[in-house]
């Protein structure tokens, strides 16, 4: 039986506070670890060492960086749209916190368990664009605005194949509750049933997190740093934190939908769950440091003319097979 936080803590408000604190702590520690991992992986791929000085294997380098970022002056440019500019780094964090709470990490535990968990994850992920838009518009900077426009266009395009791929899985599992989908994957994960769907989902997920090779919203060589060009110090760090947490969320969805979530032999559920999640994240790092950035028109053409028709065909075939078999 799946237990949720509200079963363990009867007081609603206390449960909410506890969940928020746990998620924030996880997001922070995770980002510290992932930034270090990203540096190490990129260094390895470029035949360098990466951080080595602070702590074992340079692991505390990001911690020191956070201290640096905290002590930096916060610079606000002239003629900004004040409420939008100052709210954006906070708003970027809201959907991330909401989204992280929805996944069952073990057979018996999830923070929140709802029968529309999958739709909610996508709903919250879709809200993320608002912060990017606020940052890009509020900064009063043409590079920031261009970056935000690109982000929004990309968001529209890649959300469609993402959801279509997930829809095929819900059709097979006959549920939108994430725990049910994981349970429905009996002895074999859905990546074997839905290989094309899994591939479409993963590509779109990388694009949704705005990471290379789909990182045109913040393409350094064209747009300085895209929508967060004008943010300094801890404000910039919050965008960074949200980006790394978003990677975790899309990987958690992929793990739950296609890799059987917490299921696996011998080891306990959470170990399998987080192991799969971090493996998928490692693949994202790998992609980033292997492929060059796509051009904007290539990116849009790929989404609209390749991924979406493929996802629709996948959905159609899945529906037909399900109808014939039942």
């Amino acid at each position: 039986m799946l237990k949720t936080l509200s079963d363990l803590v009867p007081n609603v408000f206390l449960a909410m506070l506890l969940a928020a604190a746990a998620i924030m702590a996880f997001a922070t520690v995770n980002a510290l670890f992932l930034v270090w991992l990203e540096r190490k992986v990129s260094a390895r791929m470029q035949r360098r060492y990466g951080p080595t000085v602070v702590g074992p294997f340079g692991m505390f380098q990001t911690l020191v960086d956070v201290v640096k970022l905290l002590s930096k002056q916060l610079i606000s440019p002239k003629d900004i749209d004040k409420p939008l500019y100052h709210l954006a780094p906070i708003v970027v964090f809201v959907p991330v916190v909401l989204g992280l709470s929805l996944f069952p990490i073990d057979k018996s535990f999830a923070l929140v368990d709802t029968n529309v968990g999958l739709v909610l994850v996508f709903a919250f992920a879709g809200m993320g664009f608002i912060a990017i838009f606020m940052a890009g518009w509020g900064s009063n900077n043409k590079y920031a605005l261009l970056g935000a426009m690109r982000a929004v266009a990309q968001n529209i395009a890649y959300e469609i194949p993402l959801i279509l791929a997930a829809l095929a899985v819900t059709m097979i599992a006959r549920s939108m509750r994430i725990a049910d989908i994981v349970e429905a994957q009996g002895s074999f994960p859905y990546i074997l049933v839905q290989p094309i769907g899994a591939l479409i989902y993963y590509i779109s997920a990388v694009a949704e997190t705005n990471r290379a090779p789909f990182d045109i919203p913040e393409a350094e060589s064209e747009l300085v740093a895209g929508f967060h060009t004008e943010y300094s110090g801890m404000r910039f760090a919050l965008f960074f934190l949200a980006e790394y947490t978003n990677m975790v969320i899309v990987s958690m969805v992929a793990t739950s939908l296609f890799l059987g979530g917490y299921k696996g032999p011998l080891l306990p559920g959470p170990v399998w769950f987080f192991g799969k999640v971090y493996f998928l994240i490692f693949v994202m790092l790998w992609l980033r440091w292997t492929f060059p950035r796509l051009r904007f028109d290539q990116l849009m053409t790929f989404a609209w003319k390749v991924l979406i028709p493929l996802a629709l065909a996948n959905l159609l075939v899945t529906a037909t097979v399900l109808k014939v078999m039942s």
């Binding site: 029968n115 809200m127 968001n155 529209i156």
Partner: peptide, 26 residues
């Protein structure tokens, strides 16, 4: 009405607003 709530946020506050915002920015 959990499903309707999720769809409300996904479709209206998410997808349709993206289009609005895109027009505003353009």
């Amino acid at each position: 009405a959990t499903f309707i709530a999720a769809i409300q946020v996904l479709v209206y506050a998410g997808a349709i607003m993206v289009l609005f915002v895109f027009v505003v920015m353009s």
